Computed example of a mutant assay.
Amino acid sequence: MAISNLHDVYHDQLQDLYSACKQSLDVTTELAQAASNDDLKKALNAGAQGISDGMEKIAQLCNDHDIDPNGEHCKGMEGLVKEARAHGLDEDISDADARDAMIITQYQRMAHYAIAGYGCLRAFANRLDLDGDGAVLTDCLDASYEGDRTMTDIATGQVNRDAAA
C-alpha cells in the first residue's frame, strides 16, 4: 500500500498492530503455562484474553474501513516474541522465581509495544475525527496499561523479592 496521507498511516498501523497482537497471543499463553506464581499465571491468562479482545476490536475497525486486518506483518513484535521465547521459555533458568521475573520482563516488553501502538492509533483517530475509533482504541490502551500495572505490582510485590532470596 502506498502511504500518502494520515488515513493511509492509520490503516497501515491498524494492520500492523493486529499482526503484533496475533503474534503475541500464543507466546503469552505459553508464558502463563511456564509461570510458577499463581498470581502471575492468572495475570498472563487475563493478558492473553485482553490481547484476543483487542484483536477483535482492531479487526472490526479494519472491517469498518474496508481493509484486511491481516495486511501487514509486524517485524517489531516478531523480534519481541522471539526474545520472549528465548529468554522466558527456552533459557536454562534453574530457579522458578527467577524464571517468573524473566517472564514478567518479556511480557512487559511486548505490552509496552502494544501501548505505543494503541496510543499512536488513538492519536491518529482523534486527528482524523474518527471519534468512535478513538473511543475503541482508548479502551484498548487503558486495558493494556492496566495489564502492565498488574505485572509491575506482581513483580514488585512478590516475584522479584522471591527471586532475590
Rank of each mutant, 00 (worst) to 15 (best):
A2P: 00
S4I: 02
L6H: 01
V9E: 07
L14P: 00
D16C: 04
S19G: 02
S19E: 02
K22D: 15
K22I: 08
S24R: 01
D26F: 10
D26T: 11
T29I: 11
E30Q: 12
A32R: 02
A32E: 03
Q33K: 09
K41T: 06
K42P: 01
L44V: 04
N45I: 03
I51A: 12
S52L: 07
D53W: 06
D53I: 02
M55T: 08
E56M: 08
I58P: 00
A59H: 09
Q60W: 09
L61T: 02
D66L: 00
D66A: 04
D66V: 00
D66W: 00
D68H: 09
D68A: 08
G71H: 08
H73C: 02
K75Y: 10
E78A: 11
E78V: 04
E78Y: 06
V81T: 04
V81P: 01
R85H: 14
R85I: 11
A86W: 06
G88D: 07
D90L: 13
D90A: 15
D100G: 11
M102H: 01
I103Q: 04
I103P: 02
T105G: 13
T105W: 04
T105K: 07
Y107G: 02
R109H: 12
R109E: 06
R109F: 11
M110K: 03
A111P: 00
A111C: 12
A111Q: 14
I115V: 10
G117V: 08
Y118F: 13
G119H: 08
C120G: 15
L121S: 10
R122E: 12
R122L: 10
F124E: 10
F124K: 01
A125C: 08
A125S: 11
R127F: 15
D131Q: 13
D133A: 15
V136P: 01
D139W: 05
L141T: 10
L141R: 05
D142E: 12
E146R: 00
G147E: 08
D148A: 12
T152W: 03
G157K: 06
Q158N: 09
Q158E: 13
R161F: 14
R161S: 05
A163Y: 04
A164M: 11
A164W: 09
A165P: 00
